[in-house]
């Protein structure tokens, strides 16, 4: 079965120029089939990128990639409601919805379900499918047995499934901006301090252990999820879309390694070694998949049973 690599939306506040360069290189060089674009975390950041979106979309599509526009995870303020409505009422565009406000605006027209929407089980997936969903990104904390069950049930009603296999885990969101708080500010006068931390602001425990990353209102894991060893099993379950989250590393190299492993050109141990080199500053984790603490890296993957 063919498996596609996808690139999730950039979670961080990268400067516009960095985003332009990043997507230009993704378009030209990365073996990715789908690219998700848009500001998912903080509505204050969105205007910085909007002007460049049409050019970036065109460039990615010319390179043969499917472009999907992702909606905000948290929708509360008037500008967030407006942005969600405008995006989800767009006709012709492929969109991924991350909040029930977006489902309301979409009113049953076709769409994808994003990882923040909490499609944990077959009953929820069936409900969403009846109301226009064609594709579901499953929550990052689902363990192996539930992933298999969800993918099978989705497959039976012709719903595509997707799962994050690389990048920091999106552990929590809040109404409060923790980046602003760290600098003695609040959300309304943040002065975009989050731009200083393109891979998130590290939080260490009192004994100096790297623990979490702050990204505006979002809290992420210190470790990068890395399911390169589990990937074949995910594909065997029927999960045909494997999501890489943009981090401040060579994402073309990351995509190439995952692709080579999917294509059987290198084995998963070699792939893991390559990824460890590409991401030398960061440790990996796969605990959620193995139903142990998410931060852990468990050796090996059991065969499909």
């Amino acid at each position: 079965m063919h498996a596609a690599l996808t690139l999730g939306p950039i979670a961080y506040h990268w400067p516009a120029e960095r985003k332009r360069d990043f997507y230009a290189r993704i378009a030209d060089e990365a073996p990715l089939e789908t690219v998700y674009l848009g500001e998912v975390i903080c509505s204050k950041r969105a205007p910085f990128f909007e002007r460049d979106m049409p050019d970036i979309i065109e460039r990615l599509e010319r390179a043969g990639k499917t472009v999907v526009l992702s909606s905000l995870a948290e929708v509360m303020l008037p500008r967030e409601r407006q942005a969600t409505r405008a995006l989800c009422e767009m006709e012709g565009a492929e969109i991924e919805i991350n909040n029930a406000a977006g489902l309301h605006a979409r009113a049953g027209a076709p769409h994808r379900i994003g990882p923040f929407l909490n499609a944990y089980n077959e009953a929820t997936i069936a409900w969403l499918a009846q109301n226009g969903a064609t594709h579901v990104c499953l929550p990052h904390e689902l363990p192996r047995a539930s992933l298999a069950h969800a993918a099978k049930a989705a497959g039976e009603i012709a719903i595509e499934t997707e799962f994050q296999v690389f990048g920091r885990a999106p552990l929590a969101v809040s109404a409060r901006c923790y980046h602003a708080r760290a600098h003695g500010r609040h959300k309304d006068n943040c002065q975009f301090v989050c731009e200083d931390d393109p891979d998130g602001m590290p939080l260490l425990t009192a004994d100096g252990t790297p623990f979490l990353r702050v990204n505006g209102i979002q809290t992420q894991s210190e470790s990068y999820i890395c399911l390169v060893r589990e990937m074949a099993e995910l594909v065997a379950m029927g999960i045909r879309h494997l999501r890489l989250m943009p981090q401040s590393v060579d994402m073309v190299a990351v995509a190439e390694t995952f692709r080579a492993c999917l294509d059987g050109k290198i084995d998963s141990e070699e792939a893991l070694a390559q990824l460890s080199e590409t991401c030398a500053q960061t440790r990996f984790s796969n605990g959620f998949f193995h139903r142990v603490a998410g931060h852990r890296m468990v050796a090996g993957s059991m065969p499909v049973s």
Binding site: F116, N118, A169, L171, A172, F288, V292, G294
Partner: peptide
Amino acid sequence: MVEGRCSLTNYVTG
């Protein structure tokens, strides 16, 4: 944290 959107405990404890 926004309730229903927090996996901090699972990250730490399983």
